[in-house]
Every structure is written in structure tokens, then in C-alpha cells.
């Protein structure tokens, strides 16, 4: 029997049905329809997330094998780092720790004072979320999305929706959780938005991810009080990102006379490409998330009432 390429060289008189099964065209139509159905289901309904999780969980060993060469290189580099380098780094870190400690002492006093004042006003004390340290195992494989994969998953109690920060600022949000890893969408991704506040004048707005590693703050009037160099921090009104974390710095303001809105472009302060560790913040409990805005409102209205009373009196 001749098979493969050689078989094709012979003139074939019989219909090819029994050699190849269904015709390529009917197969193509069937599988195209199946793909389109899959796309529709995956984009609109959440049925397939379990399937995806199971698959990525099963793929974990293969992923570990694929990661070993780069890990070996990294370890080797660590091993061969010179004594001088380590001493220098140690010195710098000690200096930094000392400076931070001095700042931390002041911070403790300020926090205590702040909490005391808040309790006097009847407002509630802000929650300090707990955090889990994760390592970036690799950047996303899809060039269309701004994601990184972190080596902490549902086995480490990570949930979708948790905020992710590094030492410089907000990085993004956990969007998909797999058993041993999770996918963090960066704030520069087009699909992610983050409620922010201008540090200088407490102006609230929402920043959207934009291509080219920048953030865009749309729908603000041209005369809005934002300058180049302004620091943007999280406002905390969404209940996901704790208030006061650095997000971005305004780098460019374009004013188009034809448009009623200013085009404000800012660059994120958190740097994913520079280091490997990041912190995954725990979501505030559901009850707290529900009660928090109400209490805040109550405190606000009380405050305004007392202000009015003062003004009247």
C-alpha cells in the first residue's frame, strides 16, 4: 500500500470520501459555525470560565516545564552576582529602611490622630486591606491585551476583582483566576477603568486605559483645573481600590478648540516591567462594601449640617 505523498501522485478515480471522511468544505462550515457559537457564548455568558479554569489547571505542569529554562538563567544570574554588588545593595536598602522607618513613625501618629478625629465626627474608620505577595510569572501571550500572569491563584484565596499594587502605585485588577495562577489586567488596558482623584485639589474623575501605556481621562471640560505634573490617586469610591494609592502622573494636556472636552493623558506610576513582585489586595467584605457608602453619606450630611449650623450661628 502506498500512503502519504506517494498516494497523491497516483491518478485517483474513486471519490475521495472514504479516504478523507466528510468533504473539507462541510467540515469547514461545521467547525466555523462551532467557533462562532463558542465566541458568542464566551463573550456573552459566563458558562465557559469553569472549563477554562480546569484547562489552565491541567496545563500547569507543562507551563512549569516551559518556565524552567528562564528560571534557571535567573537563578544562575543571582548566584553569580558579585560580592561588591551585594554590599552596595545592602547599604542602599539599609539607608532606605532607615528613612522609611522615620516616615513610618510619623505615619503611625497621623493615622492614630486621623482615626480619633474620625471617631469624634461619627465617621467610620478606614479599612486597611490585607495583601498577598505574588510573583509575575510571565506577561500575557495575547498581544492585544495588557495582562500579566501572577503565580497566585484560587488555591491561594485569590478572587477575581481584587486590586493589584506595587511599591510605586496601582498596577491593575485580577480579572481571571486559575487554580495556580491568575490574570491581572493592567490599568493601561482599554477595558479597565479606575476612579481617581487629583491629589492637589481632590477633583474626582474616572481614568480609562489607552494604547501606548498611558491613561486617558475623558469628559472633563477644557477649563478643568488639572495641570501637567499633577498626581492622580485612587478615590476609593468604588470599594475595590483603597483610597489614596498613587495611580498616574499627568504628562500631557491637549486642548482642541473644536472639542468641548480636554484631552488629558497621564502615565502610570506603577512599573510592571521593572520588577517581579506585586501585592494583591484583599477585597473588602461584602457587608462592608454595602454599608460603607451609606455611612459615608451619613457622615457627609452630618458634616454639612454642622457646617450650615456654624454658618448660621
Amino acid at each position: 500500500m502506498l500512503k502519504g505523498v506517494h498516494q497523491k501522485l497516483e491518478p485517483q478515480q474513486t471519490p475521495a470520501f472514504f479516504v478523507r471522511g466528510a468533504s473539507p468544505f462541510s467540515r469547514m462550515v461545521f467547525f466555523c459555525a462551532l467557533s462562532i457559537i463558542l465566541m458568542a457564548v464566551d463573550s456573552q455568558v459566563n458558562y465557559l470560565s469553569k472549563f477554562r479554569q480546569a484547562f489552565i489547571g491541567g496545563l500547569h505542569p507543562l507551563e512549569r516545564i516551559a518556565n524552567t529554562p528562564s528560571e534557571l538563567i535567573r537563578d544562575a544570574r543571582k548566584y553569580f552576582s558579585t560580592h561588591n554588588q551585594l554590599v552596595q545593595e545592602n547599604y542602599l536598602l539599609k539607608q532606605k529602611a532607615f528613612e522609611d522607618q522615620v516616615k513610618l513613625q510619623r505615619l503611625k501618629a497621623l493615622t492614630a490622630e486621623n482615626e480619633h478625629l474620625r471617631s469624634l465626627l461619627g465617621g467610620n474608620v478606614p479599612i486597611h486591606p490585607r495583601a498577598i505577595l505574588g510573583d509575575i510569572s510571565h506577561t500575557g501571550r495575547d498581544p492585544f491585551r495588557n495582562v500579566v500572569i501572577v503565580n497566585r491563584g484560587s488555591r491561594h484565596n485569590i478572587n477575581a476583582g481584587q486590586a493589584v499594587v506595587d511599591s510605586n502605585g496601582v498596577i491593575g485588577q485580577v480579572t481571571r483566576v486559575y487554580p495556580f495562577s491568575s490574570e491581572v489586567t493592567l490599568i493601561t488596558d482599554k477595558n479597565l477603568s479606575i476612579p481617581i482623584q487629583v491629589e492637589r485639589n481632590q477633583l474626582r474623575a474616572i481614568a480609562f486605559g489607552q494604547s501606548g501605556n498611558t491613561l486617558d481621562i475623558p469628559y472633563l471640560p477644557t477649563n478643568v483645573d488639572i495641570k501637567i505634573g499633577d498626581k492622580l490617586v485612587t478615590s476609593g469610591i468604588d470599594g475595590i481600590y483603597p483610597a489614596g494609592l498613587a495611580v498616574a502622573t499627568v504628562t500631557k494636556i491637549e486642548q482642541d478648540p473644536a472639542s468641548p472636552f480636554a484631552k488629558i493623558i497621564s502615565t502610570p506610576t506603577g512599573e510592571v516591567s521593572h520588577h517581579l513582585q506585586l501585592l494583591i489586595l484583599e477585597l473588602p467584605d461584602q457587608i462592608e462594601a454595602d454599608l460603607h457608602p451609606k455611612d459615608q453619606e451619613g457622615a457627609d450630611s452630618k458634616e454639612t449640617k454642622s457646617n450650615k449650623a456654624e454658618r448660621n450661628g
Binding site: 478523507r20 467557533s35 457564548v41 490574570e183
Partner: peptide, 28 residues
């Protein structure tokens, strides 16, 4: 005779799953 359109579809689905893109894109 060993690898046909069905194989291509399964390979595409594997690509979708491993890249984390919308299921069916690579498959189609």
C-alpha cells in the same frame, strides 16, 4: 489523512485557552 480540519479546530481552541483570548477566535 492524519491531520485535518478537526485537528486544526482543536489546535485553535488550545491556542485560545493558552493565550486567554475569547474562545473560538484562533479556532475559527
Amino acid at each position: 489523512y492524519l491531520c485535518n480540519i478537526a485537528t486544526a479546530w482543536v489546535v485553535g481552541l488550545l491556542m485560545d485557552l493558552s493565550t486567554g483570548s475569547l474562545l473560538g477566535q484562533h479556532a475559527l
